[in-house]
């Protein structure tokens, strides 16, 4: 699904990941942990081509992201759902229009019932007509998750998707992601929330990646 081959990423403070190679297979479930500023968001951005690595290659669905045209990159992003930490929306459109955007902006049909079902699942049915600036932080995260999964992506990348949610809602959203994973979607979630990781691991075979000392580790060992 996603393969890093000898990837490093330079930034103002130095070099991240130190030539890491890793594969995230179709249907896999990974958590990405590490202290704030460790590079979790950078890793996610490398996965969907918002950043390009300073060294090495990132392959998504066997295609080198650096070799893709902008149109091909857009086509690839149609198959990857992304939940950003800052949850950007088109603020002048309603929540339901924003949630439907991955379908409507790519020429695919938008079944109204799907949008309504998804909004109900994330607890935003009553906010369907609301504008994003009127939502709380937690509501924005839920709307962003709904937008990320509406197109049934092959992969879901989520950056702290439950950061502003209470435990009940966090469990509910995690259950949605587990369900998606059971249907074959690869999931990669960047989070600090160990309770959430434990909840997921109790239901599904999830691996934990950790960024420590600028290196990506799995099960405590550098990759």
């Amino acid at each position: 699904m996603i393969a890093f081959e000898d990837v490093s990423h330079d930034y103002g403070g130095g070099r991240l990941f130190g030539d890491v190679s890793i594969k995230l297979e179709q249907g896999s479930f990974h958590f990405l942990t590490g202290p704030s500023g460790a590079g979790k968001s950078t890793f996610l951005k490398l996965c969907y081509g918002e950043l390009t690595p300073s060294a090495g290659k990132v392959l998504v669905m066997n295609k080198d992201l650096q070799g893709l045209s902008r149109n091909d990159l857009a086509g690839m992003r149609q198959r990857i759902g992304v939940v950003h930490q800052d949850c950007q929306f088109l603020d002048h459109l309603s929540v339901e229009q924003n949630v439907a955007l991955p379908l409507s902006a790519t020429g695919r049909s938008v079944p109204d019932s799907d949008v309504a079902d998804l909004l109900s699942w994330v607890g935003l049915a009553s906010h369907a007509e609301a504008l994003p600036p009127t939502l709380s932080g937690g509501e924005r995260q839920r709307a962003a998750l709904a937008r990320a999964v509406i197109s049934a992506p092959n992969m879901l990348l989520a950056d702290e998707p439950t950061g502003n949610l209470d435990w009940d809602m966090s469990q509910r959203l995690m259950s949605l992601m587990i369900e998606l994973n059971r249907m074959g979607t690869a999931i990669l979630i960047a989070t600090h929330d160990l309770q959430l990781i434990r909840f997921a691991k109790s239901q599904i075979n999830a691996r934990v990646l950790r960024i420590a000392r600028r290196k990506l580790q799995v099960a405590g060992a550098d990759l």
């Binding site: 902008r70 149109n71 857009a74 086509g75 690839m76 992003r77 149609q78 198959r79 990857i80 992304v82 950003h84 950007q88 929306f89 088109l90 603020d91 955007l101 991955p102 902006a105 790519t106 020429g107 937008r147 197109s151």
Partner: peptide
């Protein structure tokens, strides 16, 4: 810029 970023994020092509 935000409109463009969001549209790019959801996979909209330049033409759209």
């Amino acid at each position: 810029g935000q409109v463009i970023r969001v549209l790019r994020l959801v996979g909209a092509r330049d033409r759209f």
